[in-house]
Design a protein around this nucleic acid. Structure first.
Lengths: 219, 219, 219, 219
DNA sequence: GGTTAACCGAGACGGTACGTCGGGTCTTATA
DNA sequence: TATAAGACCCGACGTACCGTCTCGGTTAACC
C-alpha cells in the first residue's frame, strides 16, 4: 500500500496493528461523520494511536481515505450464475451494495474530487481501486468466452479498450444512479441496465471487427 | 436560485451585481485552488464583497458551489447533426469538454461527495443540475422519433424510466472515463461508447415491449 | 502596551475586556503551572477567549507574560517613613513580597532568559518594567534631598549613572537573594543590605565629586 | 555530577566521552538557539549520541543545562592584584565576561526561572553553581585580612551572613546590569560599583560589631 | 573465552502544545 | 436594510519536541 518500507533496518519497527486499526477507524469515522467532518485527530483517537503515527504513514486525509476505501472494493467477487447476463447482474448488485455504505459513498467521491487537482492522488486511486477491480471485467469475459457466449478475441489493444469501456460504463452508471441521481440500483434497474449493456456490446462486437481493420489500415 | 426574496421591501436593496461577481469568483477560485483549498473569505475578496454579503445569500460553501457549477452545464445544447448517433456524439463531446474544465471537475465531485451526507444538498443538485439536463435526453428522443429513428412511446412511467437510465449511463460513463479512469473522452472513445449505447437501446426497445406489458400485468 | 492601534477605523473594534481577562488568566496560569507548563491555549480557555484573539494581540508567550508581569510591579510605592534608610527598606520589602509571588518569580525570570536572544523582547522588558520602576529611585533621591539627607546634584549624566547603579544593585541583590540563593529577603536581611548600600553611596558621594569633575575635564 | 553510579558492576560501562560530548553540544546549541529553541534530540545529534543515552544520564532539559552551564563558572579565578578593590574588580570583570557569552546568559536564567517551581532543580543550582562560587568571596576576604585590609572575624554565623550578602550584591548587580538593564558591565561601571560596595562594607563593619553583639544578646 | 548484563544507535510510539487557517457569526460605521 | 471591514469563537490542521519504548548489535567485566 503506502508502505514505502524504510531503507534502514534499525530502530523500532512500525506497528503493523496500527495500520489496521487506523484504516478501520477511518471507515468508522466516515460512517458517522462523513468526509468533511472527519478529522485526523479523531481517527487517531478512535484507533488508539497518536496523530504522529498516522502522519508518519499517510501524507494527508485523502491518501488515508483512498486506502481505507480501497479495501472495501476488494470484497467484490464475480459469482458464477451460469450466464454472462446473470454474472454481470450479480457483480453489479454487489457493487451497488458497497456503494450503499456511507463510508464508501462519501469516501470514494471525496477522493475523486480531490484527485482532480492532485496527480499523485489520482494515480493512487487508479492503482488501488480502478485497475484492481478491472479484474472482474477480465474474468467475466474469459468465463463467457469459455461458455461460448463471446467469441475469443486476440488483439490485446482492442481487448484493453473494450475492458476499459465496459468498466467505465458499468462503474459510471452505477455510481451515477446511486450517488447523483440518488435512486436505488435495485434488481429491476440492474436487469434493465444489463440488458442494454449486453445487447450493445453484442452489436458492437459484430459490427466492430471490420471497422477496426479499416481504421488500422488508415493509421 | 437561492434568492429567498426578503419579506420587507424597505432599506437598501441587494446588489444584483454581487451575485454575479460571487459566482464568477467562485469558479475562478475553483480553477486556481480546487475545492479543498477554496475558502469563502478568498471568494469574497476576489468578488470585492464582504463575507457577510456572501453568507446572506448562500448558507455554506457547498450551496454556493452548486450554483456556481450548475451554470456551466446550462451551456449544453443538443446539436442537430442529422442522426441520433451524431446528435448523441455531439452532446457527449460537449459534456466531456465541460468536465475538462477544472472548476467543473472538482466543484461537481465535491458537492456530490458532500451530498452523500446532506439531503438538502442532494436535492439542490438534483434540481439545479441533474433534472435540468435531462431535457437533453428528452429532446433527443423527440427529435429521433420525429425522424422516425425511434418508435413513438406513450407510457409515461416507462418513458421516465428509460430517460433516467440513459442519463445515468451517459453521464456516468463520461464522468467515470474522465475523472476516475482519467482518460480523455475523445472522439474515438465517444464513437465507441455511442455505438454500444444505441445498439443496446435499440435491442432493448425491441425485446422490451412485451416484457414491460407482462410486468405491468403483475404489478 | 502592545496595542499598535490598527490604522483603519472600520470593522468591529477589539474587545477591551479581552485584554484584561487574558492578562489576568495569564497570571493565574503562571501561579498554578509556572512558566514552562503554561500554554496559550489554556490561557485562552481561562480567559474565555479564542486562541486567535490572543495571538492577534501578542506575538508569543513571552510578550504576553511581560505585559502580565509588568502590571504587578506597578503596585510598588515609595512609602514616606521619615528617613532615606527607612524609605528604602520599605520599598525593598515590597519588592521582595512581589517576588515571593509565583507568577512574578517564574514569569519575570523566564522573559529575562528569553530576552538574551531576542532584542525586541529585551526592549519591551526595559520599557515596561525596568525604566518604569526607576521612578522609585528618582523619587527617593528627591525626597532625601528635600530632607537634607543628600546634597543636591545637578549634572544630569552623573545623576542618571547613579540612578542606574542604585537600581541594578537593589533589584539585582533582591532578585538574587530570593531566586538564586533562595533565601528570604526578610527584615533582618533588608536592614543589613540597606546599611551597606547607604554607607557605600554616602562614601562614594564624598569621594566622587572631585573625580567626576576631573573626568569631565578630560572627556 | 549527575552520575548516580549504577548499583551493579557488571555489563558495559557508560562511555565517559559521551558526557563530555553531550555537555559541549548543549553549550553549542545554547549559543545557536538559546534555551527555548534548544531540543534534546538536537543535542543528541550534535553529540553523535542517541537520545536514550542522554536520558539515561539526565532527567530532563533543565538538569542537563545546569551541568552544562555550571562548568563555565568554574573558570572564575581570584586574581591577586594587590588590593581588595583591585581583586574585586578583577573577578567582577571575569564574571561579566562569562555572562556576556550567550550560552551562559540564556542557560543560567532559564534554569533559574524553572527553579522557581522545582525545588530539586533549585538545590542543584545552589550546589553546582552558587555555593561553588562563594569560594571566591571567602578567598577574597581571607586575602584581604592577610593584607590587613580587613579585621579578622571569628563568629562563623556572622561570617556566613556577610559572605552571603556580598555574594548576593555582587552577583545580583552584575546579572541585573548585563541581563535586565542590558548595559555593559565595563571597567567604568565596575569601578563605580566596587567603590560603593567596599565603602558600604567598611562602614557596616565598623558600625556593625556592637549591634551584632546586642542582637545576639536578645536572640 | 564464553556468558551476560548493561550499554549503545536508531527510530517508532503516545502525548501535548504549537502557531495558522478557515468557517460561520457578530458588531461597528457608512451608504 | 445592505454593505465593507474586521474582530470574534470554534475546531482542525500539520509540525515539533517530549520522554518512553522497542529493536538489533556492541562492549567489557566476570566466570
Amino acid at each position: 500500500m503506502h508502505s514505502r518500507t524504510p531503507a534502514g533496518r534499525t530502530g523500532r519497527p512500525r506497528s503493523a496493528a496500527a495500520d489496521t486499526a487506523i484504516l478501520a477507524a477511518t471507515r468508522e469515522a466516515l460512517v458517522e461523520l462523513g468526509w468533511s467532518r472527519l478529522s485526523l485527530g479523531d481517527v487517531a483517537n478512535r484507533a488508539g494511536v497518536a496523530k504522529t503515527t498516522l502522519y508518519r504513514r499517510w501524507a494527508d486525509k485523502h491518501e488515508l481515505v483512498v486506502d481505507a476505501v480501497a479495501e472495501l472494493f476488494d470484497a467484490l467477487r464475480l459469482p458464477d450464475r451460469g450466464s454472462l447476463a446473470a454474472d454481470i447482474e450479480g457483480v453489479v448488485l454487489q457493487f451497488a451494495s458497497i456503494l450503499a455504505r456511507p463510508e464508501a459513498r462519501s469516501g470514494l467521491m471525496a477522493v475523486v474530487a480531490e484527485s482532480t487537482r492532485d496527480d499523485a492522488l489520482r494515480e493512487r486511486i487508479r492503482t488501488s481501486i480502478v485497475d484492481r477491480q478491472k479484474r472482474l471485467v477480465v474474468e467475466g469475459r474469459a468465463r463467457a468466452q469459455a461458455r461460448g457466449e463471446l467469441p475469443p478475441r486476440t488483439d490485446p489493444a482492442q481487448v484493453a479498450r473494450t475492458v476499459d469501456l465496459i468498466f467505465d460504463i458499468v462503474a459510471g452508471a452505477v455510481v451515477h444512479r446511486t450517488l447523483v441521481s440518488a435512486e436505488p440500483a435495485d434488481e429491476e434497474w440492474v436487469r434493465s441496465f444489463t440488458r442494454v449493456l449486453l445487447l450493445g456490446l453484442a452489436g458492437a462486437e459484430e459490427a466492430g471487427a471490420g471497422e477496426v481493420e479499416a481504421r488500422a489500415g488508415q493509421g
